[in-house]
């Protein structure tokens, strides 16, 4: 993949092509090269340049977590990250959760089975946060209130969260090979 956004200026009034910054990164396993303005947010780069629109932007100030992606394996707010900061990094978005053959990631499977989504707008960010927790090794020995603390970086306005808590527990079981 390669993209050039030379029509977009880096700072107000200064639109020399020199202001574009060359970046390379790996997004969902695919190498990406691009020349982008320094001020472009990672969320905008993913959504509008790479057309990976599964990552959503809910607040643009790092509170709601809808834009969460994995940057270097860690859940990160892509609305608070400049794309140039991701130069040389591995990025994983919701589009990279399922296997290449389409098999769902445990968190995708559990969110569907537990009705942990309604409108689906916050869902990609929520699932990336939970996927991060699974990779960190979170276990089902946590109490509900401890688990909720771990989930308190993402806002959902539809579900009331209890199905998201249940889905997280189920995803942990699936990771550990314990079916439902």
């Amino acid at each position: 993949m390669s993209t050039d956004t030379s029509s977009m200026r880096a700072v107000a009034g200064d639109y020399e092509v020199d202001d574009l910054v060359a970046v390379t990164m790996t997004v969902n396993g695919t190498a990406v090269e691009a020349k982008i303005p320094a001020r472009m947010l990672l969320s905008d780069f993913l959504r509008h340049e790479l057309r990976l629109t599964g990552t959503h932007v809910g607040c643009e100030h790092g509170v709601c977590g809808a834009c969460t992606v994995h940057l270097g394996g860690r859940p990160t707010r892509s609305c608070l990250t400049l794309a140039v900061q991701a130069d040389g990094c591995e990025i994983r978005t919701v589009e990279g959760l399922a296997d290449f053959d389409g098999t769902l990631h445990p968190v995708q499977q559990s969110f569907r089975e537990c009705h942990a989504l309604q409108c689906g707008f916050c869902t990609p960010g929520f699932m990336m946060s939970v996927a991060g927790l699974l990779e960190e090794g979170i276990g089902n020995d946590l109490s509900d209130s401890e688990l909720r603390e771990h989930l308190a970086g993402n806002l959902c306005r539809c579900t009331g969260y209890q199905n998201i808590v249940a889905a997280t527990r189920k995803a942990i079981d699936l990771r550990d090979g314990k079916e439902g």
């Binding site: 959504r47 599964g54 959503h56 919701v94 589009e95 399922a98 769902l104 689906g120 990609p124 699932m127």
Partner: peptide, 21 residues
């Protein structure tokens, strides 16, 4: 019954206004 709409949404294939090319 589990929801028909979920498969797209959990795969990041939702189509909200800003997602429409």
């Amino acid at each position: 019954v589990q929801r028909n709409e979920d498969d797209r949404l959990i795969r990041g294939q939702g189509r909200f206004v800003d997602d429409i090319p």
